[in-house]
């Protein structure tokens, strides 16, 4: 009996000691190191292999390749630069304006790339490595530690009538009323009366999208078009219409946009 008690004491002592040391370890090492250190380390290696040439070793978009896309159109010249991760602002999110993107948002960009920019697809990189590089990208801005995540915009349910002639006609009216043409032009060519003076938050000249030129950077599915009206494109002049436009009208606007893109009759 006495021996059994001694054994019990020993077990409790070991239990207490382990619990304390675990708590101490996770507290003083910081959550990131205790749980995700390996992932960030792997991510850094992946980043150095594939991303550094454009996005730079500091993640500020100032790698060896400065300009990744240069466009000349209707006498205008503008250039695209690699994303600066140090600010923590992203255009293609599933979250409202002013929010950080979700991991899935970042994974989609890393995997699919961005059409009409220098960002290539990385489907050839293993999923594990793609996920790891996202963890590493998140270390460039303190925003990922400071801010609470926002809720995703989930109600993207395309009505059946999207793309129908009636919906396109309604969408054309919305396009006029919502003043989309002020930037994107009367025919969606990106040459509206306000298109000339736009700059992004980095102070670089930008041009509103020309819908007649082809693929959207986020992807041209109706759902992708719809979500951009909700989220806006942070860092650029494209604002969020989440509070200014009814859901139904947003879908009519999708129909008209598809028409301008040549994806609807």
């Amino acid at each position: 009996m006495e021996e059994f008690r001694k054994k019990c004491k020993g077990v409790i002592f070991i239990f207490c000691f382990t619990l304390l040391s675990l708590v101490l370890m996770s507290t003083f090492q910081g959550a990131e190191k205790a749980y995700g250190a390996d992932k960030v380390e792997t991510g850094k290696k992946v980043y150095q292999k594939y991303c550094i040439i454009c996005h730079g070793n500091k993640g500020d978009g100032k790698g060896l390749v400065g300009i990744i896309h240069r466009v000349e159109k209707s006498g205008l010249v503008w250039t695209l630069f690699p994303r600066d991760f140090t600010v923590g602002v992203f255009k293609f999110r599933s979250t409202p304006t002013g929010c950080l993107p979700t991991d899935e948002d970042l994974l989609r960009i890393v995997s699919n790339g961005i059409p009409r920019s220098g960002m290539p697809s990385h489907e050839d990189v293993s999923l594990e490595d793609r996920k790891a590089v996202i963890e590493y990208i998140k270390t460039f801005s303190p925003r990922w530690q400071e801010e609470d995540p926002c809720e995703e915009i989930v109600s993207v349910k395309k009505p059946k009538w999207v793309g129908s002639p009636e919906s396109i006609a309604k969408g054309k009216k919305v396009y006029k009323k919502m003043k989309c043409w002020e930037c994107h032009g009367y025919e969606g060519k990106g040459d509206g009366p306000k298109s000339d003076k736009l700059k992004d938050d980095w102070g670089d000249k930008i041009i509103p999208f020309d819908f007649t030129s082809g693929a959207l950077k986020r992807g041209s599915s109706p759902e992708n078009v719809y979500i951009t009206f909700n989220t806006g494109l942070d860092g650029t002049g494209m604002p969020s219409y989440e509070d200014s436009l009814k859901e139904e009208d947003r879908w009519h606007l999708v129909s008209y946009t598809l028409k301008l893109l040549g994806l609807a009759e």
Partner: peptide
């Protein structure tokens, strides 16, 4: 007329979007 109100917090030498809201009417 159309306005958009873009709010951005000023970091050391950069601007981080807080909200960018369309106010078309």
């Amino acid at each position: 007329l159309f306005h958009n109100t873009s709010l951005g917090v000023l970091l050391k030498d950069k601007r981080r979007a807080v909200y960018n809201l369309a106010l078309p009417y």
